[in-house]
């Protein structure tokens, strides 16, 4: 079974530093990680490969640094990584992202299943998977929490809903997007890490994948982000130091000073 896994790089949310003067994100220091949902996608791919044989290709559209994250996927069992990177891809909304990914996937060719995460934790739309399926003209199942059965040209899976789950079957090839309940991602192996270190990640440009320039990047994006801003919140924070008891005393004093009613 040939498996393609789509992964996105997202900022590590617990590691974001803010420039104190400008109140903006310190970009070069912000660590990037694989979108957490995509780790389940990679793990499911590895498990499918272990069960059925075949090959796993991991693909991402992003900046050159994303090659490192593709290598991490090789360390946990993927065979190859491919990076779609080109100025022409930049500024993509979900529709343009799916166009770029579809072009890349068509170039890889020969696939039985494509696995995506349920959603990216930054963009958060959950649209890329289904859009990708539409563009490739194949069925999709979103929010998969378990693959019940998979054969050469058939898949039956449990789709998680707010109230339980649905059992959905469709033909292969298909796109599935996965939720975290589906598995527990493994840690890398030393052999995998060594393979990853040696791996060369090919970088494909828009021309390499024959993408239609009107459908990708900013030009291909019907959605435009006009302005991003942080809502203004006026909170003065004061850190009280000292031993816990001392802190508690000072805190109560302050609250009394501010005439905030303390329920007794």
């Amino acid at each position: 079974m040939n498996i393609i896994v789509c992964i996105k790089q997202v900022p590590a949310t617990n590691d974001v530093k803010i420039n104190k003067d400008t109140n903006t994100l310190v970009r070069d220091e912000a660590q990037s990680v694989i979108n957490p949902f995509d780790t389940y996608a990679v793990e499911e791919g590895v498990r499918l490969k272990e069960a059925t044989g075949g090959k796993i290709t991991v693909i991402s559209m992003g900046i050159p640094k994303v090659a490192d994250i593709l290598k991490e996927c090789i360390a946990v069992g993927a065979d190859d990584g491919i990076l779609l990177s080109d100025r022409a891809f930049a500024g993509a909304d979900t529709l343009a992202t799916s166009a770029a990914l579809a072009a890349g996937i068509n170039k890889i060719g020969d696939y039985d299943i494509i696995i995506c995460g349920k959603q990216a934790i930054d963009g958060d739309t959950g649209q890329v998977g289904p859009e990708l399926a539409e563009r490739l003209g194949i069925p999709h199942i979103t929010c998969v929490r378990k693959i019940e059965e998979i054969k050469e040209d058939y898949i039956r899976a449990q789709r998680m809903t707010d109230f339980g789950y649905e059992v959905i079957e469709c033909s292969l090839p298909a796109v599935i997007t996965v939720v975290k309940e589906i598995n527990e991602p493994r840690l890398p192996s030393i052999k995998g890490m060594m393979k990853a270190k040696k791996a060369v990640i090919p970088v494909w440009t828009a021309d390499d994948v024959g993408a239609d320039k009107d459908k990708i990047g900013l030009r291909g994006s019907p959605t435009k982000v006009i302005k991003t801003f942080t809502p203004e919140i006026n909170i003065n924070t004061e850190i009280i130091d000292g031993a816990p008891e001392e802190q508690a005393h000072k805190l109560v004093e302050k609250l009394l000073q501010l005439q905030i009613k303390v329920p007794v």
Binding site: L187, P188, I190, M194, K197
Partner: peptide, 18 residues
């Protein structure tokens, strides 16, 4: 060596996380 570093880091990760 690079390989020893890799082994140490992976073992440390397993120790801390698992």
């Amino acid at each position: 060596t690079e390989e020893q570093q890799m082994i140490k880091e992976l073992a440390a990760r397993i120790a801390d996380e698992k």
